[in-house]
C-alpha cells in the first residue's frame, strides 16, 4: 500500500479504461520542459530587443552569431545529451576538445599533414577515447562519473605531452575554411554553425527514428528492465560514450576552426557548460527523459546570456557564470517539482 491518492473505491481507479486526465497529461508531458526553455529564450531575446534596440541587437546577424559563436558547444552538448539520456554523465568533454585542438594544430603545423587527413584522425581518436571509457564503465561496472573524470585528467595531460605551449595555425586551408561564410540573405553562417546544425538534425533522427536511439531512452528509464526486456544494454552504453567522444572531437575541430590555434588549456571546464545546456534544455539528469531540441535551446540561452552581457558593456564577463548558475539551479528545482508532481 503506497501513499497514492486514489478514489475511495479501489476498484474504480484500477479499471484499465481510465485514461489520464487532460491536465495531468499536460503536466506530465515530457515536451513541457523544452517548451519552457524555448519560451525563456524568446522572452530573453525580446527583452534584449527592447533594451538594446538602438545598439544593433535587432540585426538578424546577432541572432545568427549565436550559432556561429556556440556551434562547438552545441555539438559537444548533443553528445552529452546522449550520455545523460542513457542515465550516465561525461566529464571528459572539455579535455577532449582541448586535446583535439592540440592534436590537430600539432599535426597540421608541426607535422605538415593535410587537413583532410587530420580531421578523420582526430574524429577517430575522440570516438575511440569515448569507446574505451564506455567499455570500462560497462565491463567493470564502474560509475561513469569516475571513469570520465579519469578521462578528463588523461586527455588534459596528453595535451601537455604534445606541447606545453599554444600552437597557432597558419595553414591556408584552415584559415580559408574559418572565414568561409554561407549567406542566408539577411546574414551569414560559418561552417562551424552549419556543421553543428547538421549534427543536431542527425542526433534528432537517431534518437527518435532508430532502434539505437530508443534503446538509449529505455536504458535511461530503467536499466534493469531494459536488460530483462532483452535489449543489449552493454553495447548501447558503450555506443553512447563513443557518440559523446566523437561529438567532443568534432566540437574540438570546430573550436580549432573558430580560434585557429591549439592550446593545452583550451575549453577547460567546457564539459560543465555542455551539461548545463543539456539540463537547462529540459533533459532529466536521472536519464530517460528529454529532447535534443531542448539542448539546442539550452545552448542558445547560454549564448544569449553572453551576448546580452556584451551588449550591456559595463558588466564583467563573470556575470555569465552567475546567470548560468542561477538558471541551472532554477531549472533543476523545476524538474524536481515536475517529477514529484508526476509521482503523486
Amino acid at each position: 500500500m503506497s501513499a497514492t491518492t486514489q478514489s475511495p473505491t479501489a476498484s474504480d481507479s484500477r479499471t484499465p479504461s481510465s485514461s489520464p486526465s487532460r491536465a495531468a497529461r499536460l503536466l506530465g508531458d515530457r515536451r513541457l520542459p523544452v517548451a519552457v526553455t524555448a519560451l525563456l529564450f524568446l522572452l530573453m531575446y525580446g527583452g534584449g530587443l527592447a533594451r538594446y534596440q538602438y545598439y544593433g541587437f535587432a540585426e538578424p546577424q546577432v541572432f545568427l552569431n549565436l550559432f556561429i559563436d556556440n556551434g562547438y558547444l552545441l555539438v559537444a552538448a548533443v553528445g552529452v545529451t546522449f550520455v545523460i539520456l542513457s542515465g550516465g554523465i561525461d566529464l571528459s568533454v572539455g579535455s577532449m576538445i582541448g586535446f583535439t585542438t592540440m592534436f590537430t594544430a600539432w599535426l597540421v603545423e608541426r607535422q605538415g599533414l593535410p587537413l583532410l587527413v587530420v580531421v578523420p584522425m582526430a574524429l577517430a581518436v575522440g570516438a575511440f577515447g569515448g569507446f574505451l571509457m564506455g567499455y570500462v564503465i560497462h565491463n567493470f561496472e564502474i560509475q561513469p562519473f569516475i571513469v570520465t573524470l579519469a578521462g578528463l585528467f588523461l586527455f588534459r595531460g596528453l595535451c601537455l605531452v604534445i606541447s606545453k605551449e599554444s600552437i597557432s595555425i597558419s595553414d591556408s586551408t584552415v584559415s580559408s575554411m574559418a572565414q568561409a561564410q554561407a549567406s542566408l540573405g539577411v546574414g551569414f553562417l560559418s561552417i562551424g554553425a552549419i556543421v553543428s546544425l547538421v549534427v543536431l538534425a542527425v542526433a534528432f533522427y537517431v534518437l527518435h527514428y532508430t532502434r539505437f536511439g530508443r534503446r538509449v531512452y529505455a536504458i535511461g528509464g530503467n536499466e534493469q528492465s531494459a536488460m530483462l526486456m532483452g535489449l543489449p544494454q552493454g553495447g548501447t552504453k558503450i555506443a553512447v560514450y563513443t557518440v559523446s567522444g566523437f561529438c567532443s572531437a568534432l566540437a574540438g575541430l570546430l573550436f580549432t576552426l573558430y580560434i585557429q590555434s591549439g592550446d593545452p588549456l583550451h575549453a577547460t571546464g567546457m564539459e560543465l557548460d555542455a551539461i548545463a545546456a543539456v539540463v537547462i534544455g529540459g533533459t532529466l539528469l536521472t536519464g530517460g527523459s528529454g529532447y535534443v531540441l531542448g539542448t539546442l535551446f539550452g545552448v542558445l540561452v547560454l549564448g544569449l546570456i553572453k551576448s546580452i552581457i556584451q551588449f550591456e558593456g559595463t558588466l564583467s564577463s563573470w556575470w555569465t557564470k552567475i546567470a548560468t548558475g542561477v538558471l541551472l539551479c532554477t531549472f533543476i528545482l523545476v524538474q524536481r517539482f515536475m517529477t514529484t508532481r508526476k509521482k503523486a
Partner: peptide
Amino acid sequence: EVNLCPNL
C-alpha cells in the same frame, strides 16, 4: 515486478 520502461 513490472520490468518495463515507465518513461516510454
